[in-house]
Computed example of a mutant assay.
Amino acid sequence: MKMYGIERKKSVKYFNNNGFTMLEMLFAFSIFLMIVSFLPVSFNFLFQDWKMEARTQRLEWHVFINQLKKEIRLADTANISPVSIVLTIDGKSVIYEKYGSNLRRRVDMKGHEIVLQKLDAITFSTFNGGVEINVSDNFDQKHSAFLYYLMNMEDVDVP
């Protein structure tokens, strides 16, 4: 039943019941801006992953040097060539040699343990009382280390 002559009052409560208010729009826009503000940071992280790999390569180098230092000090004999190191430890032959872009360790010419990865070049050279190792990797980093033998120290008389 319709009533004529009575005018219904208009208020905000009834006027915008199904609409999208300005407050809702500002709230949605602020969430959108927060999401978009993280995009440059995430792109920077995604496209510069090589920096993380370069740091990992440095850590790998330090672990390798500590392992090799221990084996050189325990070695009975050591034969150094520009491309490999052959150590004799308790009658076993331990060889470090470049294999592709990796440096591998083998015991008695068996096994295949990768100790360094992503190498461009590695050289071994001998000097009085030790070995010098020079490495350049795929990240344009150069590493070098001097490792000293303890096998000849038994012959030295200590006063």
Rank of each mutant, 00 (worst) to 15 (best):
D49S: 09
A28V: 15
I122E: 03
M25S: 14
M34F: 14
V12L: 13
K92E: 10
K98H: 04
I133E: 01
I85M: 08
T77N: 10
F45L: 15
F139P: 00
K110C: 04
G130K: 00
L150C: 04
V158K: 15
I65W: 01
S42W: 12
H143P: 00
V36W: 10
N134A: 14
L74N: 08
M22E: 07
G5N: 10
N18M: 12
Y149M: 03
M153W: 08
Q117I: 09
E7K: 12
Q67D: 04
F15H: 08
I31S: 12
N44F: 13
S125G: 14
L147C: 03
V36F: 14
N138P: 01
S84A: 14
R58H: 05
M109S: 14
S101A: 12
A78W: 00
T126W: 04
F139G: 00
N152M: 06
A54L: 05
N152K: 09
I35L: 15
V86K: 06
M3E: 08
N17F: 10
M151S: 08
M3N: 10
T123E: 11
H143M: 15
F15Y: 12
L74D: 10
N152W: 06
N128L: 11
I6C: 00
K2R: 11
F47P: 00
K9Q: 12
V94A: 01
D76C: 01
S136V: 13
I35T: 09
K98R: 14
D90M: 04
A78D: 04
K70C: 02
R73S: 06
F64K: 00
A54E: 04
L103H: 02
L46M: 14
N44L: 13
S30R: 04
V41E: 08
F27W: 12
D155P: 04
E97V: 05
L68I: 04
E97N: 05
G91D: 11
M22T: 11
G100V: 10
S101G: 13
D155A: 15
M1G: 10
D157A: 15
V86P: 00
V158W: 15
S93P: 00
E71D: 12
P159C: 13
L39Q: 08
K92I: 01
W50D: 10
P159I: 14
A54V: 03
K98V: 06
S81P: 02
F43Q: 09
L150W: 09
F38M: 13
K142I: 07
Q117P: 02
T21P: 07
L68V: 07
A78N: 04
D108W: 07
Y149S: 02
Y14F: 03
P82I: 06
